[in-house]
């Protein structure tokens, strides 16, 4: 049997997830023997083939050209694996979604008319069928190696199904939220990082995106009790996986509620000043 071929593709991203492939120092030369790496611009190989057995796709779709390119890559790929928060959710650059992108262009570039970009940053799965997703900003090296090994062996890929919160319990970490009131997205965030941030006395900021059936409303109650306000929670949800539906929808609701509250408060402040009673 011939050696399976691998391609690594880049869309809008920081290169950090493909660097994770090169960061497999102990395993890289072994991977290079088990896989025929034919397309990986950052490392050198650049061969356009009709078919690659495995395609790793990094980054999100932010240009019309890239929206066409991913369809072509899908057609050339056996297993298509998206790697990282950009490819799986649109990434931090999805903070443009819903914003005034023309204003964004003007604020960064002297000649916005030379810039070609879409108004949105979207995950790969919005454009083509994705076979496997690896979460994280960046992905975990262990999950990447586990997935490649499973694909080569023809067995099921290991997928983390629990939240960061479970990983903290497994490690015996004291809960940063309960013990210190630290704002933490661990209960609603996809595991796989081995509860990295709480292990460093910091709250999880959700870089692996929402876990399955994430109960953000429940977490919100606990965060309020610990002194975290909605504006802080909304900002946390709107960072590296801002367009992931569970985070996006919750942030929209809290943001709207908070704006209504502010409007009401401002209204009653005016009423107070006029001598009227609060309802």
């Amino acid at each position: 049997m011939s050696t399976p071929t691998l391609a690594v593709w880049k869309f809008a991203s920081c290169d950090g997830c493909q660097l994770t492939v090169l960061d497999c120092e102990d395993e890289l030369l072994a991977i290079a023997k088990a896989l025929d790496i034919r397309m990986f611009l950052e490392a050198g190989p650049e061969e356009v083939l009709d078919h690659y057995d495995i395609s790793l796709v990094e980054g999100s779709v932010t240009t019309a050209h890239d929206a066409e390119r991913i369809v072509d890559i899908r057609a050339r790929s056996g297993a298509l694996v998206t790697i990282g928060a950009c490819a799986t959710t649109g990434g931090v650059q999805a903070l443009r979604n819903g914003a005034d992108v023309a204003d964004y262009c003007r604020s960064v570039y002297a000649r916005p008319d030379w810039i070609e970009t879409l108004a949105t940053s979207t995950p790969i799965a919005d454009h083509v069928t994705v076979d496997y997703e690896l979460h994280g900003c960046p992905i975990s090296k262990h999950e990447l190696l586990g997935t490649i090994t499973a694909l080569l062996a023809g067995r099921r890929t290991p997928v983390t199904r629990h939240s960061v919160c479970i990983e903290c319990k497994q490690l015996g970490n004291p809960c940063v939220l309960v013990a210190h009131g630290t704002a933490c997205l661990g209960p609603v965030t996809h595991g796989g990082c081995h509860a990295l941030c709480p292990s460093f006395d910091r709250g999880c900021f959700g870089c692996f995106g929402p876990s399955e059936s994430a109960n953000v409303d429940g977490l919100r109650v606990a965060l309020h009790a610990g002194g975290t306000t909605d504006p802080v929670l909304v900002r946390m949800l709107r960072t590296f996986t801002t367009s992931a539906p569970a985070f996006h929808d919750a942030a929209e609701r809290y943001d709207t509620a908070q704006r209504d509250d502010t409007a009401q408060r401002d209204g009653s402040a005016v009423a107070d000043a006029s001598g009227a009673h609060r309802p």
């Binding site: 809008a12 932010t62 931090v92 650059q93 903070l95 443009r96 964004y104 262009c105 960064v108 810039i115």
Partner: peptide, 14 residues
């Protein structure tokens, strides 16, 4: 590289 607008969306952050 497609633009990602970091300097724009940093406005309003903490």
């Amino acid at each position: 590289e497609p633009p990602r607008f970091f300097e724009a969306f940093l406005r309003g952050r903490a």
